[in-house]
Amino acid sequence: MSLLEVRGLTKVFNRTVRAVDDVSLTIEEGATFGLLGESGSGKSTLARLIPRLIEPTAGELYFDGRPLHNLRDHEMRAMRERIQIVFQNPFSSLNPRMTVRQLIGEPLIIFGRATGSALDARVHEMMELVGLPIEYLNRFPHEFSGGQRQRIMIARALILHPRLLILDEPTSALDVSVQAQVLNLLIDLQKRLGLTYLLITHDLSVVRYMCDQAALMYLGKIIEWGTVDQVFHTPQHPYTQALLADIPSTDPDQRMLERISLESDIFSARWNGHGCRFSPRCPAAQIGACKTSDPSLIPTQAGHRVACHLISTDSATS
């Protein structure tokens, strides 16, 4: 059974902005699921919808087979012991008035799992696990670098022994040299603790490096989803193809040949709500359906799903 199942999850802000639009996905226990998208694609909103830090407008959530979407507030609070989240910006996600000891130990206090010396022992253990010197116990967040803060955040998230860890761009606020350290720490922790990751990022290489599954979001919707191999080697959606082609290549001949440029960006290429949401920027030859209906996510081969009229008509005719 899959650890997390999301069905038709939708979040509408201010009655008009469909930040997350009918998203469905499943994550297997022990896997790393990479969710890709550019700024404004709704991926961070999705990250906060799953542990219900913001309330979904519609849709269903199942964790380990148990529904989350209809839990009452206090029941959902209890479930947060199993689902933890690491935020993007370690400079704003740690309470500036709390020491490292308080920050890392707080989840245990909230859930009444340990007090006194047992609590201290657990905090020490977590600091060791994420590679923070014990001497930093009584320091405040502002005394740390971004990478160290993200380690504090990870220790805080893991002290409850969660099964699912949602990583919302865990490295995008960090220096490049520190990014790899944090990613390797996460890989190492996953092996040791048997964690399941939902990794949200805009960095294609991070997904290729860490993930088993990859999905791409565009304007709140998943437009392609498959194994990392499928998505990176046989991308189907014009958006995915354009993104992959934009990764700079070290081979000068290849660089100019295959590059497909996307015009404008996600905000200026306004989708008017009709037809395919990607159609205003789509570099591929468009057919009539692109202007009239929004394609849904359709399987093309085992485990590979694409939302594109060009693909679905291809497979329908052949």
């Binding site: 947060r80 933890q84 989240i85 935020f87 910006n89 996600s93 707080e106 989840p107 909230i110 998230a157």
Partner: peptide
């Protein structure tokens, strides 16, 4: 602020978030 969402994410109650965070 993110740290308020962070407190909620580790299961803190509204009262704890208001008075402690």
């Amino acid at each position: 602020e993110d740290f308020v969402a962070g407190a909620k994410a580790v299961g803190a109650s509204n009262l704890r978030i208001i008075f402690r965070h």
